[in-house]
Amino acid sequence: MSDQRPYATLLAKGEDRKQRILIVAQRLLARNGWRGTTLAQIASAAGVSPAGLLHHFESKDQLLHAVLDARDIDDDVHANRSGDLLEEIERVVQRFERSPDLVGMYVVLLVENLEPDAPLHDRLQARYRFAVDSVAEFLRRGQLEGRYRADLDAATKAVEIVAFINGMETSWLLDPSIPLKNVFKEYIRSLALELSHESTN
């Protein structure tokens, strides 16, 4: 039987190199945006040759989608879509601490791809709609269970909540000294009161 360990070692090294490229790409994209970041810059900062980078990512477009995949996976792994909405909003703060480069990268790419003909516009728009629909579903479930006011428009409120989160990400990128936990705590307190039946009395 042939020894498979050398091949496994090569695979492991390849995956490590791929992850390093992704991490470096996230940092550079957060700082310079996709227009101001080249594959050559990413390769150099990751300590690989341009050919080595292209071995893992065939184009800049593929790499951009890969870093967005990483952000989506991070979101999905740490989310509890059947849990409590207020707890999920509070959990967003952990993303800033856990993956600051992912937060910065996403904000910069979002701003750079607002125009319909931008390369990532459709994907980012779809992700935004998914976020709004997910929050609306949380709200509707709370209404059906009698925890939230029935007269609240879930779709409209969901847009506001997502706008708050996106706005806080942008504000934090401008000023990392913002007391995120306190701001989120106050917003959640205010939202809980608005969603409750007491706010109508």
Rank of each mutant, 00 (worst) to 15 (best):
D117L: 12
E160W: 04
Y106I: 00
G14E: 02
G104F: 03
P6W: 07
A136Q: 03
E137W: 12
F184L: 08
V108C: 06
G33D: 00
I73V: 15
A70H: 13
A131E: 06
L53D: 01
L54N: 15
Q26R: 05
A40F: 04
L195T: 03
D72S: 15
F184C: 03
F57R: 06
L10D: 09
Q62T: 15
M168G: 08
E97I: 12
V107Q: 14
A46Q: 03
F96K: 08
V132D: 04
L28E: 00
I178F: 04
S2W: 08
G52H: 09
F130T: 15
R31Q: 03
L53F: 05
H78M: 10
V135L: 14
S44V: 01
F138R: 04
D74W: 11
T200H: 13
A12T: 12
A30G: 07
S177L: 12
L173G: 02
M105V: 02
L64I: 10
L63I: 02
V111P: 09
L53W: 07
R98L: 05
Q41W: 05
T156C: 11
R140A: 04
T170N: 10
E112S: 12
D69C: 10
D151W: 06
L63W: 01
S59R: 02
A66H: 13
A150D: 09
D84L: 05
Y148G: 01
E112R: 14
R149D: 06
V67I: 14
D76K: 14
D69Q: 11
E58L: 06
L109T: 13
A155M: 07
E145W: 09
A25C: 03
M168W: 08
W172V: 06
P119H: 08
M168F: 10
A150G: 07
D61V: 11
T37E: 05
A154W: 10
A43C: 00
L22N: 05
F57V: 03
P6I: 06
K18W: 03
V107P: 12
A30C: 03
L28H: 06
L195N: 03
A25D: 01
V103W: 04
S171A: 14
T200Q: 13
A45Y: 04
R27Y: 01
W34D: 01
I165M: 09
A131R: 11
Q125T: 15
D84T: 05
G142F: 02
G167V: 10
L64S: 11
R71Q: 14
H197N: 10
R81L: 15
R149W: 04
E112V: 15
A79S: 15
N166A: 10
A8W: 13
S99F: 09
A12E: 07
A118N: 06
D117M: 13
M168I: 14
A70I: 11
I23Q: 13
N32L: 07
E160H: 08
A150S: 11
K185C: 08
A150M: 04
T200S: 15
V92H: 14
N113D: 12
K157V: 11
A46D: 01
P176C: 12
N113G: 09
R129W: 06
V132L: 07
S190Q: 00
A131S: 13
L110Q: 13
R35V: 09
R98Y: 00
A79C: 13
L68S: 11
Y7C: 02
A163N: 08
